[in-house]
Design a protein around this nucleic acid. Structure first.
Lengths: 183, 183
DNA sequence: CTTCAATTAGTAGCAGGTACTAAAATAAAG
DNA sequence: CTTTATTTTAGTACCTGCTACTAATTGAAG
């Protein structure tokens, strides 16, 4: 038994809207050569909301994401910097950074904070993370302010040894050792 | 000469819409305690389009971005999973994940991929990263497909030892050792 | 008290729908 | 071939959040 015209049409409908969610029922009815009512029945059957709702969803998703993403790019605000020696940065954690179940800040945010500070403290145009040694001592919860301190301990040609300590109100929550390679 | 009520109101209007563009004229008229017609005259004067147009603009502006952004939340697609034993995930890297200067994928993307796979492979409701040992062997460039393999090597009460190997076309680019703690 | 800007009120019309009823066309079954 | 069921089309009333317009009201300033 092959697929009914109805099923095929509904698949096409999904295809069209996945490629471009900004299409009216009217336009869909033209593209698929059926009446506008059929389009609406199809949307109902497939649980696809109306154009305005779709646009709003795209807009909302975006709007919230752009904020969190720009946060995840900013992996802390640099407060103090002495090249090849030391640096301090801070990062305010929030609800977007946590695992839902536990409300604990995801490890990679903390890692990103540490790594970016390690990169910042090095006096080299570009550097890549070579080896790292991490220890998460205490889980961080949303809302806590992280303070990261970097200390360059050794420089061997193109290799930089950097220690990072992150604390919440003077209590150490994370420490790490990076060996960075300037390229 | 101080500012007229009109000017102050129009400034507030701009403020409100900058913080949240998803507000109807009706809501604005309530917030600013003026009639809906006044709101409309103000929008005209300020050249601010109607709600639906604003929403559409937000949606359109970032529509292309959304796709790539949502990728950065996905830290790999799980292909194979044997709880407490092994797991495999893949991640396609792209231009949004790199340092501009070097075109090298930022370390925390790779770390996030590794960490999330390490979490996935553990048969525990929640787990936090305790200790990690990382080595970035070869820099990853945008566009390369990462394959991560996890292997649980030891389980001691609430502590899980997990090894993660990430490779690009059979060449190992990263390896790490995690000690995860179930909470 | 007048005069002009600012504000409010009210109406018609539009886009892109929902929600509903009903008729027509098509497909499936006996 | 007819009867039944499914699918599609048609049509209407109503909704939101406006635009575009006309007209009335209020407020401050000379």
């Amino acid at each position: 038994m092959r697929k009914s015209a109805k099923l095929l049409r509904q698949e096409s409908l999904i295809d069209i809207l996945e490629k471009d969610p900004f299409v009216t029922d009217d336009s869909l009815s033209e593209q698929l050569s059926v009446s506008i009512q059929t389009i609406r029945l199809d949307r109902m059957a497939l649980g696809i909301p109306e154009l305005r709702k779709r646009i709003k969803d795209v807009a909302k998703n975006n709007y919230d994401r752009v904020k969190t993403i720009s946060k995840s790019e900013i992996v802390g605000e640099l407060l103090d910097l002495e090249l090849n020696d030391r640096a301090i940065s801070i990062l305010d954690t929030d609800n977007d950074m946590v695992y839902e179940k536990t409300q604990i800040v995801k490890g990679h945010y903390i890692f990103a904070m540490a790594e970016s500070l390690a990169l910042a403290v090095i006096d080299a145009d570009v550097a890549i993370t070579g080896v790292a040694n991490l220890k998460y001592k205490i889980p961080v919860k949303a809302g806590e302010k992280l303070v990261a301190k970097a200390k360059v301990t050794q420089i061997k040609e193109i290799e930089y040894y950097v220690h990072i300590f992150i604390s919440v109100q003077d209590e150490q929550v994370f420490r790490s050792k990076f060996i960075m390679k300037a390229v």
